[in-house]
Design a protein around this nucleic acid. Sequence first.
DNA 1: ACATTAATTGACCGGCCGGCCAGTTAAGAG
DNA 2: CTCTTAACTGGCCGGCCGGTCAATTAATGT
Lengths: 206, 206
Amino acid sequence: MNTPQTRDAELTRGRILEAALDLFVAKGFADVAMREIAGRSNVTRSLIHHHFGNKEALWEAVKEQAFSRYIEQQKPELEHASMADESLLRSAVTRYFRFLGENPQVVRLLGWIHMEGDASCGEREGEIIALGAERIRQAQRAGVFRADINPVHAVTMFVVTCAQWFHGRAHHSQWPGIGSDDEFLDDFLKIFVDGLRIAAVDGNRP
Amino acid sequence: MNTPQTRDAELTRGRILEAALDLFVAKGFADVAMREIAGRSNVTRSLIHHHFGNKEALWEAVKEQAFSRYIEQQKPELEHASMADESLLRSAVTRYFRFLGENPQVVRLLGWIHMEGDASCGEREGEIIALGAERIRQAQRAGVFRADINPVHAVTMFVVTCAQWFHGRAHHSQWPGIGSDDEFLDDFLKIFVDGLRIAAVDGNRP
DNA sequence: ACATTAATTGACCGGCCGGCCAGTTAAGAG
DNA sequence: CTCTTAACTGGCCGGCCGGTCAATTAATGT
C-alpha cells in the first residue's frame, strides 16, 4: 500500500514466494491462509492467484524453489570435496551438519515434505546422494573404508542423523545428559568413522 | 445412528480418541475438521466438545494417550534387556527398528510433535532414553564399549536413525542404490557396533 | 499517439469451520 | 417411582476460507 513501486512481475513473484516460504515452513500448508501471505508480501490475494493459480500450486512452487536452492547449494560441495580419506569424510559430515544447523528452514521444509510423503523431491536429492556415495565407493576400492557396506547406506546414515538431530531438536534436548550440537557431532563422528574403518571389519560374531 | 448402544462415557471417549488419532496423524492437526472426527466415531460434534472441550484439547488428549502407549510399550523392553555385550545391543537396535517399521503411526506422531516443537513429550521419552544410556554406560565400565563417548549420544544416534529412516521413507526410497529395510539395518549395525567397539578407539588422527 | 498486453485491485460468493446453547434422553441414586 | 446427573442431540451463528470476475492502471511495442 505504501510501496507503489513500478510493476515488475518477477520481483513480485519473488516477494510472494519468500513470504509463502516463511509461512508454510513455519506453520504448515493447511494452517496458512492466502490472506496472510498476501499481507506479508504487500500484495492482494487476487494477484497471488494471477501468478500462481491456487494455493496448492503456490506451495508446489515454493517447494520447488527452496528445494532447488538447497540442492544447488550442496551439489558443488560434494562434487569438489573428496572423501578419499577419513579426515575428508569428517569434514564433509561436519559441513553438512553445520549447514543444517544454520538453515533451520531447510530442516523444516524437509520435515513437511516427509510428512506429505512427497517422493518427487527425493529423486532430485538422490543425485547428490549418489555423488557422495561414489566418493565413498572410491575410498572403499582404495582400501581406506571397509567394502562390506553399501556406500549409499553410509551416506544415508549421516544425512539422516544430521537431519533428525535438528528436526527433533526441541524434543530430545530434553533428554537428560544429552550434549550440545558439537558434542553430539563429535561422538557421532567417532562411531561413524571408526565403524567405517577397514581395521574394524573382522569382528563379526553371530 | 445405527448403533444406539447403551451410554458409556469411557467407551465413547475411546472411540473419539481412536478416530481423532487416525485422522490427526494422517493429515495433521490443522487439516482435520471436527466434523470428520465426529463422523468417523459416530458421534455428534457437540459430544466431542462435551468430553474434550475444544479441538486443541482433543489433540493434546490424543497425543497424551498415544505417546503414553508408546512409552509404556518400550519401557519394559529396555528395563529387562541388557546391553552388556554387542549381540544384545544389536538385538535392542533391531527390535526398536522393527517396532517403528510396524508402527508407522508412532513415527508420524513423533513427526508432528517435532514439527510443533512440542518439548513436553521429550521429557517423558527422556526416561527410557536414560534407561538405555545406563545399559551402555555399564558396558563401558565393563570394558566392552569404548568409554570416550557419551552413552546418551550412542542411544540418540540409533533412535534418531531408526526414526528418520521410516520418517523419510517415501523420500529416500527414491535414492538410487538404496536397499531394503533389512539391508540398511544390517549396514547400520555394522558401522554402529564396530564403531562402539573398544578396539577401534586408538585410531584418532587430526 | 494510441492500441495491446499484462500486472494489479476490490468487491463478492458459496462453503466450511469451530464453538455454543437450549433441549432430550438414558442411567443411577434415594 | 421420581429426582438428579450427565451423556447426547440438532440447530444456529459469526467468521474465515479459497476462488472468481469485472474493472483499473501501468508498461510496451508501433
